[in-house]
């Protein structure tokens, strides 16, 4: 497959474009929802320094989502803001593990959030994102390569941040150790769909848009096994559904209602 240089060129080949947008929706929707879950933590992190760092990561991540939505916009999928705000949950392609709530309560009232979930989920997510973006550097779609390259300039700092947290907590107090392990067990049951490429997987591979699901999973496992002192037994599962096939929990609906509340109050208005 030769390099596809521009959105115009990609649009010439319907099958190519269809496969390509699947990958871009996955990347955009993952960042969008994980950034939302991060923003719910604002002001509630274990200390002020963490609040500053976490909110910086969350902000960068929303910026990355915007870059991927813009690539979709160039391909004629619609305005980036509409893509971010108007699509309902069964049009979304994010991994289901990334959409689940931070804990009970809401970010406005009684947020009983669990820092162990924040650390485990963000660490696993950033490790996954790094692998996926590195594979995207080899993509046949040049604009995706360029964006992956740009995002990879700051993303390793995000991974480093969460790696530090998990390293510190996983072997410290008994309570911390148990909390981290139990969140890892949970993650192993829910993160499976993140590695899927969705209904256009065959074309994605044939047209060299991205590497295989197995490659992503294996590289990710190799990477997290270097850091984690406890790795759950058994295969990765997708108990919450397959987000890449647009299956989601009602927790995504709740998140989208908040994210789009003002936007939806008047979609035509300039905000």
């Amino acid at each position: 497959m030769s390099l596809v240089e521009t959105a115009e060129q990609a649009k010439q080949d319907a099958a190519y474009k269809e496969a390509l947008v699947e990958v871009l929706y996955q990347l955009a929707d993952d960042d969008f929802i994980i950034s939302y879950r991060g923003s719910e933590w604002l002001g509630l992190a274990p200390h002020i320094e963490e609040d500053v760092a976490f909110s910086s990561i969350t902000q960068n991540t929303m910026g990355h989502a915007m870059l991927f939505y813009q690539l979709l916009e160039e391909l004629g999928e619609g305005d980036a803001d509409a893509l971010a705000h108007e699509r309902i949950s069964n049009e979304r392609r994010n991994g289901t593990y990334f959409e689940i709530k931070n804990g009970s309560g809401t970010y406005l009232e009684e947020p009983q959030y669990d820092w162990a979930l924040a650390v485990v989920r963000n660490y696993l997510y950033e490790a996954f994102k790094k692998v996926k973006l590195e594979e995207a550097l080899k993509s046949s779609y040049a604009p995706l390569r360029n964006t992956a390259d740009k995002v990879l300039m700051e993303q390793p700092y995000h991974l480093g941040h969460w790696k530090t947290w998990i390293t510190q907590l996983q072997d410290s107090s008994q309570e911390a150790k148990e909390r981290i392990q139990s969140r890892l067990d949970e993650a192993w049951k829910q993160i499976g769909d993140a590695f899927e490429l969705g209904p256009k997987a065959d074309d994605i591979l044939a047209k060299e848009i991205l590497s295989s699901s197995e490659t992503l999973k294996q590289r990710w496992l190799d990477s997290v096994k270097e850091t984690l002192t406890y790795v759950p037994n058994g295969d990765l599962a997708s108990e919450l559904g397959n987000g890449r096939a647009k299956e989601h929990t009602d927790q995504l609906d709740q998140a989208l209602a908040t994210l789009s509340e003002v936007y939806n109050s008047d979609r035509e208005a300039v905000w």
Partner: peptide, 30 residues
């Protein structure tokens, strides 16, 4: 002061506004 603005961070009505208010609230924390 980050808390009242935080209420509107996820609700900001465009990607640009989301980024703007996130940056602002992060500054306040800093």
């Amino acid at each position: 002061g980050a808390l009242p603005e935080k209420e509107w961070v996820p609700k900001a009505p465009s990607l640009k506004r989301k980024l703007g208010i996130m940056a602002k609230v992060q500054d306040e924390m800093g």
